[in-house]
Design a protein around this nucleic acid. Structure first.
Lengths: 150, 150
DNA sequence: ATAAGTTATTTGCATTTGCAAGTAACCTGA
DNA sequence: TCAGGTTACTTGCAAATGCAAATAACTTAT
């Protein structure tokens, strides 16, 4: 294998870690964390998702998610509801407070997107997004077909 | 903000998480972990790095690294040495066993690189690497100039 | 020469994480 | 209809993590 800084997982992790820590620091004053933002962002996309769905889209292990949601419920950001059609299923709904927090987090998220992509043309940015989607799909194909981890 | 799956930190995290878990599973039978591999890969690049250097290149918090290195020393993969010129500094050296493990991990790392980039042309792969380096540099510029976290 | 400040690493401690096992609800086939 | 299997989530528990404080060694200014 060649030099470390041409090794893709290394570059990926490094960039991801940097952006994650930085974003985490930025949202802490609002009483939020990166993980909380991930859940809120997913629910903003579509409210009323089940634990398993959220685990898949956020890449947070479902057992970790259980406890994260516990804490978010305590903060009154979301509520758990039982799916009446299937009582095993738990469905999450954002509260008014949750929406309020989401609205305050959005501009921060947008700012980070901008900073991360500073100097990229619209086309280059889209290339990058596409490449990351392909990369994910490649790994997905390989993976035994089951749950997410975080 | 637009849909979640055009949000860059999301794509980055998702791809990184998938590749990390998958690689972690692959190396477990050899008694290794992703983090151990990161340290060994960094030391393969240049032996005798200090804790702080390793923390920066691996994106592992230096306190976490201390304990990771403890465990790696117990496994006889590396040894700590004091820098004679500056007794605060700890410098890491890979042992024969460490090199042996590294040699066994390398082909796995190469395989994952290949799988991740399946369907990418050499040029596309290089584009992606370049984009990730730029992205990292952008975040680096923003960050208050100090330590890494993991 | 030394007090005050800085740098490198480790330690303390509370939180987060992830695997495995547990529980509850649903489905399927005889 | 009910036994056995599957699915969805939660809990138990040990390990990993990250911030802050502690320790130790160096540097600088006086």
């Amino acid at each position: 294998m060649g030099p470390l800084d041409s090794y893709l997982p290394y570059l990926l992790n490094r960039a991801g870690a940097r952006i994650a820590t930085s974003f985490g620091e930025a949202v802490r004053p609002l009483g939020a964390t990166l993980q909380i933002w991930r859940v809120l962002a997913a629910l903003r996309e579509r409210d009323g998702q089940r634990m398993g769905d959220l685990s898949a889209t956020t890449s947070i292990d479902v057992s970790t998610l259980t406890r994260l949601v516990d804490s978010m419920e305590k903060k009154r950001l979301v509520v758990r509801r039982r799916d009446p059609a299937d009582a095993r299923v738990v469905v999450l709904h954002v509260t008014a407070a949750g929406r309020r927090l989401t609205r305050r987090l959005l501009p921060i998220a947008e700012r980070y997107e901008k900073v991360a992509l500073r100097g990229f043309s619209a086309n280059e940015a889209e290339q990058l997004r596409g490449a990351l989607r392909r990369l994910y799909a490649n790994m997905d194909a390989l993976e035994s077909p089951h749950r997410a981890r975080g």
